[in-house]
């Protein structure tokens, strides 16, 4: 199994074998965390530019740590999204970054498809760290990794994703990844936050968590944003909480070994209550740790040369 891609733009176009290779590679990367010297020289001399057009701490730090543990040099560039619409074109920006010698550009952008716009135009490897409502492949990979680590498999599991599916790149990447590896996916949320055509992606849609909770092996709770109220998609955060907020009582009928996940940052008391987030079934902190390992694996696999004549 080889990994011959230049970029990681999403999981929609990856094969199950490619996803599995990333997950297996991440296992070895995670082993490094137990060493006293947590850094390996693999990407010495390589430069990773982390270009974020949206504020984010978790993902940015995770990528930065991943790159540093592989000995790459990292540069952070943050640009506010307001400057995107009118300022320098993103194509010019990344061409400049490429000219400065970036081997990788890790990009987060509020507009779906922004990484695709630049991927054909430059030779640096592009890693999508979240584009609009489209994909967030490394988050889904770390979710898959975390599920596999906890459950030993993905195939055959029933995974529920609760919340704002329409606006969620995490949900989309998770749907592709989970389906490719053989899981069953259930989307749970209000109809205003689930795309009309969601079921054409091969998932099942529920408007009530109670109707499906007892079947689920894993529940992935998405962050709900206040703007949804302004867009008339929700009457209020409190009403959302009263119907979809994941609380202990709502989990009464769930399996004892239900795995509880959240991509963070959490709104405690809105989409999830503290007793649930802090329960022994929650693997939310382990997800964060796994994120570094998965991102190291992605950097490692994309960095390889394309010539296999070896001595």
């Amino acid at each position: 199994m080889r990994f011959e891609r230049k970029d990681l733009l999403g999981l929609e176009n990856l094969t199950a074998d490619e996803i599995n290779l990333i997950l297996e590679t991440a296992v070895s990367m995670k082993e490094l965390f137990t060493r006293s010297v947590k850094k390996v020289p693999t990407l010495r001399g390589k430069t990773v530019v982390i270009l974020f057009y949206e504020p984010s701490t978790r993902t940015r730090v995770s990528f930065e740590l991943a790159a540093k543990r592989l000995s790459a040099d990292t540069v952070n560039i943050s640009s506010s999204s307001s400057s995107v619409a009118k300022g320098e074109s993103i194509i010019d920006t990344v061409k400049t970054i490429e000219a400065l010698g970036a081997d990788f550009i890790v990009i987060r952008h509020p507009s779906s498809g922004a990484p695709h716009l630049i991927s054909n135009r430059i030779s640096s490897s592009i890693i999508n760290a979240g584009d609009g409502m489209h994909e967030h492949p490394t988050q889904a990979l770390l979710d898959l990794f975390s599920i596999k680590e906890k459950k030993g498999r993905i195939a055959g599991l029933k995974v529920g994703i609760v919340g704002d599916i329409s606006h969620s790149r995490v949900a989309r990447s998770n749907i592709w990844g989970l389906k490719k590896l053989g899981a069953e996916v259930f989307l749970i949320g209000p109809p205003t936050l689930i795309p009309r055509d969601a079921e054409t992606l091969g998932v099942k849609v529920y408007y009530r968590l109670e109707k499906i909770i007892k079947k689920l092996d894993v529940i992935n709770i998405l962050r709900i944003q206040r703007e949804r109220q302004k867009d008339q998609l929700l009457p209020s955060m409190e009403e959302y909480n009263s119907i979809f907020g994941v609380s202990l009582s709502r989990l009464e009928k769930a399996r004892n070994d239900l795995v509880i996940m959240h991509p963070g940052p959490m709104n405690r008391g809105i989409e999830v209550t503290s007793p649930v987030a802090d329960s022994k079934n929650a693997i939310i902190n382990e997800q964060v740790k796994n994120g570094v390992a998965v991102r190291m694996a992605v950097l490692y696999l994309l960095a390889g040369g394309k010539n296999e004549n070896i001595a």
């Binding site: 693999t42 960095a303 070896i310």
Partner: peptide, 22 residues
């Protein structure tokens, strides 16, 4: 030992499937 992450020919070949160092 899996030395994949320490090799000097890394960028000249496709990455091999790496396994854990134990």
């Amino acid at each position: 030992l899996d030395v994949s992450l320490y090799r000097d020919d890394f960028s000249r070949r496709l990455p091999r499937r790496i396994k854990e160092t134990v």
